[in-house]
Nucleic acid binder design. Structure first.
Lengths: 193, 193
DNA sequence: TCATTTATTTAACACGGTGTTGATTTTCTT
DNA sequence: AAGAAAATCAACACCGTGTTAAATAAATGA
């Protein structure tokens, strides 16, 4: 049953590296982090880092890919039972984020990877574009594009605020807010709670 | 009438530095730019850079502050004649951005200063929060905060798309779209053009 | 115009992070 | 216990940083 990196040692060092990485990402952007300081904080030798990763960006990519896999795994069962609402999917994404809050520093927040954040948002959106097609039928492509730009960035902004607040609000509620603002605009503020 | 940096030489080198800087910012984030390569591209000596700026961030700050001044100067006359709509102000901001499209690399787009972008958005918003107060009266502070996060990021996202498209759409129209999406949400797509 | 100020260049410096190497020690596997 | 895999250690050349001091070039004012 054991194949790849069964070695306890490799697993431990990788975890140490990741913990230091996420800690540092809470303090500064990736470009300002040196491999040297990361290794010192992790308590490992600098050469060991290079035997696992070529780069800080390689490290980040590996973390992001694992997150994406986990997201897809979490959304898989939902896709199975047919039609989904945008809200259900968004909620599930928010839940996943909550379960990986330590890794969110890599993705969102001050020094996150914005490109990857967009990827996550799209992941939820792509799964049910159809459900909103009725709105799009008579709209010009240009308007759709601009609306899409606005809404994607908006969702990320709301996510960041949610994370900054320590995710005290339930994932469903945060997801519902994102959904409602997207649907109603400022009318979101006037509806009964 | 001459006081500060009348010197033609200083003006020229500063311009050379800025041009290289904005060019490089279109290619990569500020943290990946070295002062050495900037100076080589600008055709000036590295020591000369240090006699004008302490840092790449110092350089960016100076550019941003000048942009802010210009924005405030542009909005000043509008403030004079009393009440303004959000749309007028947003439009004027979009116009300013269009007039400074080369400097927008410093602010928006791929490798821009997101914090500064937020500052710009707030600049327009702070000037007429009152006009939307009717919506806020009965809304919970929490909802307002999350709405605000969503909308600020959304505006920035729309701005970035506008810039990416080469600002072919008139500033008024882009501003109106931002306004409409904020007011109506997805209903923006169903209204008659 | 000429002397003075001011900006720029040049070359050199110590410092610190990078990425790689080879030899050594530690730890896991069987 | 013996061999394999992983981590450590020390050393290496390379490159960007930020600072200096002296030399050169250009703008200013009388």
């Amino acid at each position: 049953m054991k194949k790849f990196t069964n070695d306890h040692r490799a697993r431990v060092t990788k975890m140490l590296i990741r913990n230091s990485f996420t800690t540092l990402l809470k303090q500064k952007p990736i470009q300002s982090i040196s491999i040297k300081e990361l290794c010192e904080q992790a308590g490992i030798n600098r050469g060991t880092f290079y035997s696992h990763y070529t780069d800080l960006y390689d490290l980040r990519n590996q973390i992001e890919e694992e997150m994406l896999e986990e997201f897809n795994r979490a959304l898989e069962p939902l896709s199975a039972d047919g039609q989904l609402t945008q809200l259900q999917i968004t909620t599930e994404i928010f839940r996943c984020l909550k379960n990986n809050s330590d890794l969110c520093a890599v993705t969102l927040g001050e020094h996150g990877d914005k490109a990857f954040a967009l990827k996550l948002i799209n992941l939820g959106r792509e799964r049910c574009v159809e459900s909103y097609l009725k709105y799009f039928e008579h709209a010009s492509p240009k308007k759709i594009e601009y609306f899409y730009s606005f809404v994607c960035s908006g969702c990320i902004g709301l996510l960041q605020k949610w994370l900054d607040d320590g995710m005290v609000i339930p994932a469903e509620e945060a997801a519902k807010m994102a959904e409602d603002i997207m649907l109603k605009g400022i009318g979101f503020l006037t509806e009964e709670s």
